[in-house]
Design a protein around this nucleic acid. Structure first.
Lengths: 134, 134
DNA sequence: TATGAGGCCTGTAGCAACTACAGGGTCAAG
DNA sequence: CTTGACCCTGTAGTTGCTACAGGCCTCATA
């Protein structure tokens, strides 16, 4: 039941320093301490940290994670708040995917414009810099 | 022909501070100065800055941009180096797109699991934190 | 000629979200 | 009783900028 910070880290794939950082910025509560001043975590903290890490993996900023936690901390709150944050994030993800796809096309064009010869014959540099005129 | 830092910025959609920052970290050379100590740029610098910005837009890190510039600075070098960097970057972009798509699926699942009721009935929190047992 | 708005200068400090020390205390095994 | 792995605090570094503060310079207009 009692967990050290290292065990928390292993369980959630989080560096120790990151956990302390989350505590410092108030995402994680200050935990109990053992007699030797070690942090002493329970399941609740583990759950909270899992939630944070999972949200981070999904690309939520720490600020959004804080908002999500805030919403979920008020027990009686309806989950429309969470839904709103997540839906908005979905839009951002879609936009990011579209951007990356456009970028991919351009990158491919850049690579294809290189025939393996020397820079003098290669168009990559010009393809990236709209300089041309001197 | 002569450009102020502000004109450079406008031409490449770059903030003045960013240009000075590129100079500080050695991506841009220290330019000539006017009698009143203003930076005095020419077409070569404009081209270089364009290249940097374009590469950044394509998601290359400043370190990779530096590598690209290094390769292109050696006139006789074949462009295989550039091609290698760009191809590797393309792989990263593809990976990122795949990740985002997986994320999108998960986000969608999270959103769908919310029926607009209260948190008590909503599965979003549990969906994100693998805690369950207490 | 003066004056006001805008541009430029240097230098430092701040942002996110960590990560990496330095310099120490603690604990369990052999 | 010592060794090595863990933990503690606190500070400074990372990337790629961005935002001041405090001060010149320049140009158009009154």
């Amino acid at each position: 039941m009692a967990l050290t910070i290292g065990e928390m880290g292993k369980a959630t794939n989080t560096k120790i320093e990151t956990i302390r950082y989350y505590e410092k910025i108030g995402l994680l509560p200050k935990p109990a301490r053992t007699s030797s001043n070690y942090r002493d975590y329970g399941q609740a903290e583990l759950g909270r940290l899992s939630f944070i890490r999972r949200s981070r993996d999904l690309g939520f900023s720490l600020d959004k994670v804080r908002a999500l936690l805030g919403v979920s901390d008020e027990k009686s709150c309806n989950c429309a708040g969470i839904d709103r944050i997540a839906s908005q994030h979905l839009l951002e993800v879609d936009r990011k995917i579209a951007d990356l796809r456009a970028l991919r096309r351009e990158l491919k064009a850049v690579i294809d414009s290189c025939d393996g010869g020397t820079v003098a014959e290669c168009r990559i540099i010009e393809a990236l810099g709209p300089v041309a005129s001197t």
